[in-house]
Design a binder for these strands. Sequence first.
DNA 1: CTATCCTTTCAGAACAATCTGAAAGAATTG
DNA 2: CAATTCTTTCAGATTGTTCTGAAAGGATAG
Lengths: 184, 184
Amino acid sequence: MSSSLLSQSRSLFIRRWGEMAASWGISRTMAEIHALLFISNRPLCTDDLMDQLQVSRGNVSMNLRQLVIWGLVDRVHQRGDRKEYFVAECDVWQMFEIITRERRRREIEPIVETIDRCRDMLKEELKELRRSKDDKRREIVQFRQRLDDMQEFLTLANSLFNLLVKVGKSKVGDVMKTLGRLAR
Amino acid sequence: MSSSLLSQSRSLFIRRWGEMAASWGISRTMAEIHALLFISNRPLCTDDLMDQLQVSRGNVSMNLRQLVIWGLVDRVHQRGDRKEYFVAECDVWQMFEIITRERRRREIEPIVETIDRCRDMLKEELKELRRSKDDKRREIVQFRQRLDDMQEFLTLANSLFNLLVKVGKSKVGDVMKTLGRLAR
DNA sequence: CTATCCTTTCAGAACAATCTGAAAGAATTG
DNA sequence: CAATTCTTTCAGATTGTTCTGAAAGGATAG
């Protein structure tokens, strides 16, 4: 019987994981594939994924490729079988590191770079206006101030993630303790 | 002349901020509106936004509503003017808190809740199978283990964000120092 | 109350992301 | 090597999201 509590919770988890996907910059199907691999206790092949998620072969193929590129999924070969099989990276800290790296590359780095360029341009413009129009200068100075704030914040968030990943699972208790102390 | 370095960097920043938006679960226009308000040194009205971003009145209206609901933008009235004006929350830490709260509500809480339900179901199922099919039990136990890992990680990330927001800007240097020490 | 000015709403249009399925490409087997 | 089995690719279809513009809904002034 296929609606055991086990299979119910499997599909519940997979569906939810997929729904979350959009906000993680990952397509629903890609997330569902990852979820299914994550909770399976053996490598799965393309047909397993097609059957269980009801999506086309091409779709599975494309999404697996991305997952493999990211490093969230590995290809494995079963001895005596022509098919390729796939397993998910299952250490949640490792997953966190991979996803964070990817998101940083796409979300943080481009904006940091843009802010840098903007700041340079504003500095230039301020030089031009050295001893003229006071209100325009004030406008520029304020713009630059806001960019500075943003830049500072992003840089900080960046290093925080780096350190967190380095510190890793083992010492997270210590981190929490310290933060708790500082928060008081 | 409208292509001064100032206006160039304004539109550069706005465009990039808008591009980042997708991955933050925010539509491009919504982000552009926020960006424009963020870097403006005075409140802007609907027509300002329409002109500068080249989008329709309805679009501006809808997106402003969301921004106001989130708390990233405030309505303000100019004495002697019938129009409504808008200003952005400009403290980046405040922005961080608001966005984090929103994302947590949409991304973390639902999956945590789902994992809880799955764990309950698996516990139930294990009871049923108390003294039968060993391989099926092993499968369930492993599934549960992975859910536990995930749950632990999410809970932790959650408290980390809470503490970070509490600690705030002023003490971030201390946080970094501590983390640096632990990372070694 | 009426005119004026501004905001909100929403059906349908425009655009964007994702998926399918069939055809082409690789790899393995006998 | 031809046959078989599996994988990848991509044009076009499907689905989902965002935007427009016009109409309806306030609010204020006279």
